[in-house]
């Protein structure tokens, strides 16, 4: 058996000291060992994007990284989006535009969209379509997700 490694994961600004088996994916460590179950797992092999989190501000598939690789990196998950009672503009836009039904894919889409809108606040509709094609949703048919992210982009731009 492989030895456990002691690591520190900084999730949404809070340090979690955990002892991890190297084979545990970042998604499993976040969910099972740091108790942050907002990040979902769909396929566990890189196809669906439900597990998307931000690692050092870049959206990545947390099922395709090992937890041990995220030692001392800055991780952001869906739990970190709202400021207290105040929802993030993307969360509001998802509610207002009916961009979720069962909600399983939503944390992944929210983190994907957060990452891209922070990196490219002026992203065009076409580029946004391409980025949003990264993740799968079995319910909405995507149109409302696209609408919501465009609305949040415009709102976040106006606010900045």
């Amino acid at each position: 058996m492989s030895d456990k490694k002691d690591i520190t994961l900084t999730i949404n600004g809070r340090d979690h000291n955990v002892s991890v088996d190297p084979r545990w994916t970042l998604a499993d460590v976040i969910r099972d060992h740091c108790g942050q179950t907002g990040t979902h797992l769909g396929c566990e092999h890189g196809i669906c994007g439900a597990c998307t989190v931000l690692v050092d501000d870049a959206p990545v598939r947390s099922c395709l990284m090992f937890g041990v690789q995220a030692d001392s990196k800055k991780i952001r998950t869906v739990e970190g989006l709202a400021k207290g009672e105040e929802y993030h503009p993307l969360q509001k836009a998802f509610m207002e535009n009916h961009a979720l039904q069962c909600g399983y894919c939503t944390p992944g889409f929210l983190m994907l969209a957060t990452g891209i809108l922070e990196a490219q606040p002026d992203i065009s509709d076409d580029e946004l379509n391409d980025v949003l094609s990264s993740n799968l949703c079995r319910c909405t048919g995507y149109a409302n997700i696209v609408k919501a992210v465009r609305a949040a982009r415009d709102e976040m731009k106006a606010a900045s």
Partner: peptide, 12 residues
């Protein structure tokens, strides 16, 4: 590069 996989996969 834009033809390779998807944006999050291209980050890693």
């Amino acid at each position: 590069v834009s033809n390779i996989a998807h944006y999050p996969i291209r980050q890693r």
